[in-house]
Structure formats: C-alpha cells, structure tokens
Simulated scan of single mutants.
Amino acid sequence: MRTELKLTRLDRVFARLDREPERPAHIDVPRMSRHRVVLFSATLAFYLAIVWAVVVTSWLVRLDWQVMFFRPYQQWPEIHAFLDYYVVLGQRGPTAVMVASWLGWRSWRQHTLRPLLTLGAALLLLNITVGAAKYGMGRLGPHYAVTIGSNEMWGGGDIFPSGHTANAVVTWGILAYLASTPRARRWLSALSAVTSLGVGLTTVYLGTHWLSDVVLGWAAGLLILLALPWFEPLIALAEAGIFRLRDSLRSRPGRTAPAPAPVGAPVPIARSAPDEETPVREPAGPARTSRPPLYLAPGPHTARSERTPVTPVGSRRPPHSDRVARTTTTSARPVAGG
C-alpha cells in the first residue's frame, strides 16, 4: 500500500503543465518574416503621418471639427443606448478579464504559459507606447476643445491616440495571433478587425474622441501586434524563469515535508527505475501483539493442538419415526409357490 503527498491547487496546475513540457507540434510561433517587417514599416510610417497631419493642423483637423459639429449622437439617438454598452468591448479592464479567461483555458489545454504571457506582454507594450503618446502630446477631446479649428495639442489632455481603439485592436487581435490553425487565424482576424472598427467609430459617435484619434489608435494597436514576434524569445525566457522559480520554491526545506506517520501505519515505498530493485523497509515502531477474538468468553483458553479429541456418542443422523432400526427382527416373508 502506498501513500502520496497531498498536492495544493497550485501544485496541481503546475503538474498539469509538466505533463507535456514541450509545446504541441501543430502550434507554430509567429516569426518576424520579411512580409511582417514590411507591414510593420508601412504601419509605422502611417502612424507618423497621422501625427504630423494633426500637429501641422492639416485637412485632417478640419475633418475632425466637421464630424464633431455634425454630432452623430444627436443624428441617431435611437442607437445611443446600445453603443453605450458596445463601447465596453474597448475598455481595458473588462476585455482583459474576458480574453485572459479564454487564454487561461488555452494554457491549461496546451500545457504552456505562452498564451497568458503573450497577452501580458502585449498589454504592457500597449500601456507604455499608447500611454507615452497620450501624455506626451496632451491633446484635448471634443468636449473640452477651446479654439475652433485648432488641433488642441499640448493642452493637458490624454485622448490622442484613442486608448479604447488601440486596446480593442490588441486585446481581440491577440486571439488571432495565438490561433493554432490558418483558418482560425483568418476568422479571428476578421472578427477582431470588425470589433475594433466598431469600437473606434462608437467613440466618435459618442463625441469622446476626434476621428484622427481613432485612426491613430488603429495604427498603434496594429504596430503592437506586428511587433510581438520580436518579443517571443523574452516570453520563452519568462516562461522558463517561472518554472525555475516554482522548482526553487518546491525545493525549500520544510516546503513539502510529510507529516510523521503513526505507529503501525504503512510506510511509503519510493518509486524506482525498472532495472533497480525496490528496497524493502521494515515498519517503524514495535510489532503488533496478537489480541484474542472479542467473541470468546473470558477465561483461559488452550491451543487447538493441546485439546483432546472427543468422539461423539451415537449416530449423527437425525432420528426418523418411519424408519426401522437394523437390530429389530422383522416378520418372515411369505414363501412364494406351493
């Protein structure tokens, strides 16, 4: 009989991940190919062009003011209630929880921490790049604009680029980035594009962002998704470091020491290789003393070998009234013939 240590919930999770330490063969890690580098360079040039067009107060700023004066929320008020809920798909907190739950299940199924670590790296890049651009340019929103026709730059605002739009592109686009098949990647790319496009236009409808904020938010989110393959080696190092930290915590003295077994309890047998012989350990503590059965009457009892055999008297067959004993005389049988 073997006894095993009781594992905690965290130990069960890592045991699940240890069951298949290698990444599944059908899941490929995107690499920074030449095609991706070209797309990244084109998106970066587009990003810089949008920033320059707003800084110099070009036709794009005039288009921002025209859309703002159009006031879409007054033109179509019947969809206002629905879009108030739809814009939540671009908020960082709710979307991060939903996507992290799905990617956590993916990590459990694929026995790897890469999906969750990739999401964390993408959100970290999003906060650094978009946050720095927001507070660096300090553009005011439509509701806080001061001068009609101006670009409202360096006024202490934080809306350029649109955080809702960039977050929608990154959070929902990470599902397509981590897709395991080309077909799933195409469908998820289309779904994330439609979702992020709708979130960006919803912010313009509600009047919380300029149109140029949304366009720059799309470019900012796409830049992060295109640059993720450059960070794959760091993600792999972080995953290996987490497992090393787990192993060091397990190896600390007193971390997994089992409680002392009671006297007479079965001793656990250590598993060994097939070629090695398993050593047999003697049970600890004094040997158990034999106890008399509880159903015996009190008093001295002799062993079976010391008892004198007793032969039962008489026949062991039960008496029958219709049978005649062999010792009794029977009447003479009639003689046939004559």
Rank of each mutant, 00 (worst) to 15 (best):
F69R: 15
G90N: 06
A122D: 07
G141C: 09
M98P: 04
Y86M: 08
F69H: 15
G120C: 11
G90D: 07
A133S: 11
Q110S: 11
A81I: 04
S101F: 14
S58R: 09
W108A: 08
P72T: 02
S107H: 00
V87F: 02
W59M: 07
W76G: 02
Y86A: 09
L124K: 06
G120M: 12
Y86H: 06
V54F: 02
V67R: 00
D84T: 11
Y86R: 00
T112C: 05
A53W: 03
V146E: 14
Q91A: 10
T95R: 00
M98Y: 11
Y85K: 09
Y86Q: 04
G120K: 05
L63T: 07
T112R: 05
T57G: 12
L126Y: 01
E78T: 13
S101G: 15
A53E: 07
G131Y: 02
Y86S: 04
D64Y: 06
V61T: 14
Q66C: 01
R109T: 08
V146D: 11
F69Q: 13
M68F: 12
A121G: 08
A100H: 01
V97L: 14
W108D: 04
R106K: 12
L63Q: 07
R62Q: 14
L48I: 10
L89Y: 11
L116S: 06
I128T: 12
M98H: 03
L125G: 13
A121Y: 08
A81L: 12
R109N: 04
L63A: 13
L140W: 00
G141V: 03
S107V: 01
R71W: 03
G104K: 01
P77Q: 11
R62C: 00
Q110L: 14
Y86C: 01
W52T: 09
A121N: 02
D84Y: 10
G104T: 09
T129L: 15
M68C: 08
F82K: 01
F70E: 13
K134W: 11
A133F: 09
R106I: 08
Y135E: 12
V97Q: 01
V99P: 00
S101M: 14
Q75P: 00
G120H: 04
R106T: 07
W76T: 13
